[in-house]
């Protein structure tokens, strides 16, 4: 990020001079900053809602059920953290939320998992293996019920809004598998 961020900003600045777009660029600076404030206000509501519900899940038997259900996959994905109970709980909730297409619930659970994983991380400056896997899985995110897209298609008058599900499954699974395999290779190579 310390390289990418300045590069994006500087290149954008130079390109907009070359392109005669400098006025747009200037406006975008102020509008992006105020966009964040609007976004954060909705975000804080959603985060609190799902953090609260997550706490209830953790205190009930639902948690054990989730863990039992996901354990075989999660043990393989996060071999170094399989005994970290708090982290695995948060990761389970994060995974289920991604499956169901509730991004609002996935983020607080994912960040909670990062916090727990950081506690067992030996080198705090560097992402641990489990963190890398968690991040990659959240960027590719398998979605079984793509609620937003179906809603958009329905509102634009599609005859069969949910016919999109099959192509989405194939494409999201292809992407996620690629991500997982590449991450496993990347992590293995670094160890040597």
């Amino acid at each position: 990020m310390n390289y990418l961020w300045p590069i994006i900003i500087l290149i954008s600045f130079l390109f907009s001079i070359f392109n005669g777009n400098i006025q747009n660029l200037n406006n975008s600076i102020f509008s992006s900053v105020s966009d964040v404030v609007t976004l954060s206000l909705t975000l804080v509501g959603n985060m609190c809602l799902w953090c609260g519900l997550m706490k209830i899940i953790q205190e009930t038997k639902l948690m054990n059920l989730l863990i039992k259900l996901l354990n075989p996959i999660l043990r393989w994905l996060y071999p170094k953290s399989k005994d970290n109970k708090e982290a695995m709980e948060a990761i389970s909730i994060n995974t289920v939320s991604n499956f169901l297409g509730i991004g609002n619930a996935a983020t607080p659970a994912g960040l909670k998992a990062m916090e727990e994983l950081q506690k067992e991380n030996k080198n705090k400056d560097e992402l641990s293996d489990s963190m890398v896997m968690l991040i990659v899985l959240n960027t590719t995110s398998i979605q079984l019920i793509p609620t937003t897209v179906i809603a958009i298609r329905a509102s634009l008058g599609s005859l069969n809004p949910s016919s999109i599900i099959l192509p989405i499954w194939v494409s999201t699974i292809a992407g996620t598998l690629t991500g997982v395999i590449l991450t496993k290779i990347l992590l293995r190579r670094k160890k040597v």
Partner: peptide, 26 residues
């Protein structure tokens, strides 16, 4: 967002598998 939440500085090239996965799914 995830990296910042633990204040980690070294990303271990996490962006590479993530971006290739995006390309593959598209």
């Amino acid at each position: 967002v995830y990296m910042n939440s633990v204040k980690a500085k070294k990303s271990r090239k996490v962006i590479i598998p993530a971006l290739i996965a995006d390309v593959v799914s598209i």
